[in-house]
């Protein structure tokens, strides 16, 4: 629909002028709404990608500190505690909750971490020695996990927004095309109907004329009257 080359064919009547005007207005409003939505989402998207970048770097540092504190534990306890910990894990203390945030009609879920009270699978770890280090290590790792959860939320939002933005930008064009398609089809159907009606009417008129001429030349007669009746039946069909 761009350029003067393929201009839409419209009958130049006042009614279709009004129709086209309202159509144009609707299309413009829809387009600007979608554009605003797309812009809001894109803005959010850029912000998220920037924060992902930051959070990933932060995660690198946090995990390094955490790994160091674990090394301290191994040193203090004087042995490998990995096996013991893996075996005593039963119930997660650290859990996730999801909440939603609405950005121009798109629900972005975000994770939130919380710690359940009471259950402690590792009460005996470091009981003999190194208890302090174990405690510190747990805290460090808990903070690290919080960072990871935050990052995971960002990443989820990233994936969802990416998808939604694609859809919004595509719908912009596709819905327009679909609508045009439907209208075009309807128009063609109307045109076909009208043509059929016109030709039928013309045919009937022609026949009538011919018969009238026939009648005139023969000036009456049973047979002619019969034919006339037959033709009148034809007329009734449309």
């Amino acid at each position: 629909m761009s350029g003067a080359g393929d201009r839409e064919a419209v009958f130049p009547t006042r009614q279709s002028l009004g129709l086209m005007k309202s159509k144009l207005k609707g299309a413009e409003t829809g387009h600007s709404l979608l554009k605003r939505k797309s812009e809001a989402l894109t803005k959010r998207f850029r912000e998220i990608t920037r924060r992902i970048d930051e959070a990933k770097r932060k995660m690198g540092r946090v995990m390094q500190v955490a790994a160091f504190s674990l090394a301290e534990v191994s040193y203090a306890v004087g042995g490998d505690i990995g096996y013991q910990i893996q075996e005593s894990a039963r119930q997660a203390r650290f859990r996730l909750r999801t909440k939603q945030e609405n950005v121009s009609g798109v629900l972005l879920p975000a994770f939130e971490s919380y710690q359940t009270e009471g259950n402690n699978d590792f009460g005996l770890t470091g009981l003999g020695k190194g208890g302090q280090q174990v405690q510190r290590c747990r805290e460090t790792y808990a903070r690290a996990v919080e960072t990871l959860v935050e990052l995971a939320s960002l990443q989820t939002a990233f994936v969802i927004l990416d998808e939604v933005i694609k859809v919004v930008n595509r719908r912009d064009i596709n819905s327009e095309l679909d609508e045009l398609d439907r209208e075009e089809f309807y128009r063609l159907k109307k045109v076909a109907n009208k043509k059929q009606r016109d030709t039928a009417a013309a045919d009937a008129e022609l026949k009538k004329k011919m018969q009238a001429e026939d009648k005139n030349s023969r000036s009456g007669g049973g047979a002619a009257a019969d034919i006339l009746a037959e033709n009148e039946d034809d007329d009734v069909i449309f």
């Binding site: 790994a67 910990i85 893996q86 997660a92 650290f94 999801t98 699978d121």
Partner: peptide
């Protein structure tokens, strides 16, 4: 979805389990 899962080397898994994400 309320749990985290981890695939990692021994140290990473140990640390994260210490934080309390382990669940059976």
């Amino acid at each position: 979805r309320q749990f985290l899962a981890v695939i990692g080397d021994e140290d990473s898994v140990t640390g994260l389990l210490l934080a309390g994400i382990g669940h059976v």
